[in-house]
């Protein structure tokens, strides 16, 4: 997917003739992948440093340098896994702005852990959106999984509480909570999420195992604001990058990791239940140059 430097070869002749033009175009291509101008500048500064100090004149070497810089930013040192608690139920809270793919991702995650023979329960805590409950119920039926839902407009905190009660009673391994989409700028709705988090922590007596922000890969620079504000309210543990089957490159996750240290943990690449994968920084970076 993220084939951001696919035209590197095309602009290579410029490197020989006019270096400034070469770097400018490289910068443009990175920006075109939605990497922020700051992150782009940072990566290129590092690359340039080597190129000039070591007098590098070989496009393959420049590619390697670029890759190294990008992997450096994306790598997590083992922090890319999902945390499974030793005292079940493990709890994943899925959050994000409207329409990014939260509900679908909840279903995909549930399917993924069901495959691993875990007992999964879905908590339908989006009580706001029209037919949100029916949408997730559809997936729960399809996957033959437990689901807890309340009436429309009821308190999402109560849904979560109820879900955890039932999970504990039924010996569930993993509870995945779907929440309503909300803008990071909406004070009240962010407070509502904080409250949900408190409910969970009180019930399980520890931090929530995973709080994952769902980011749509077609999103531009605003994704950074999303990550920052959701993180301020909730202390995110990671990101699910969705819709990477589109032509957008999701480069903003580089900026998010670089600026805020929040790693991408999963990616989704379609509307089917098995279109979910663990994020692999090396592969991701590798695919840039394929």
């Amino acid at each position: 997917m993220l084939r951001l430097i696919k035209n590197l070869n095309n602009i290579w002749n410029k490197f020989k003739d006019n270096r400034k033009l070469f770097w400018d175009e490289l910068e443009e291509q990175m920006v075109a992948s939605d990497i922020s101008i700051n992150t782009t500048g940072k990566i290129l500064a590092e690359v340039k440093k080597y190129v000039y100090s070591e007098n590098i004149n070989d496009i393959e070497k420049i590619k390697i340098l670029l890759k190294k810089q990008i992997i450096e930013i994306l790598k997590t040192d083992g922090g890319g896994d999902l945390k499974i608690s030793t005292t079940p139920p493990t709890v994943f809270l899925i959050v994000g702005v409207n329409g990014t793919g939260k509900t679908t991702s909840v279903a995909k995650l549930a399917g993924m852990f069901k495959e691993k023979s875990k007992k999964v329960l879905i908590s339908a805590a989006d009580t706001y959106r029209s037919a949100a409950v029916e949408q997730i119920q559809h997936y729960a039926r399809k996957l033959d999984l437990d689901i807890v839902s309340h009436q429309k407009f009821s308190d999402p905190g109560a849904v979560v509480y109820d879900s955890l009660e039932k999970a504990m009673a039924r010996g569930i391994d993993l509870v995945i909570i779907d929440t309503a989409g909300r803008m990071q700028t909406s004070y009240n709705l962010m407070e509502e999420l904080k409250k949900i988090k408190k409910v969970i922590m009180k019930k399980i007596g520890r931090e929530v195992d995973e709080i994952l922000l769902v980011i749509d890969s077609t999103t531009g620079q605003n994704a950074r604001n999303q990550a920052e504000l959701f993180n301020n309210s909730l202390n995110l543990t990671g990101i699910i990058l969705t819709k990477i089957d589109s032509t957008s490159r999701g480069g903003i996750v580089l900026t998010i990791k670089n600026d805020l240290g929040i790693p991408v943990k999963l990616v989704t690449d379609g509307e089917k239940l098995d279109n979910i994968h663990f994020f692999d920084p090396e592969g991701f970076t590798e695919s840039i140059f394929s």
Partner: peptide, 12 residues
């Protein structure tokens, strides 16, 4: 069109 769309908006 989602107002938050990034650089690909044009192609889309």
């Amino acid at each position: 069109l989602d107002a938050m769309t990034g650089q690909e908006a044009v192609n889309i």
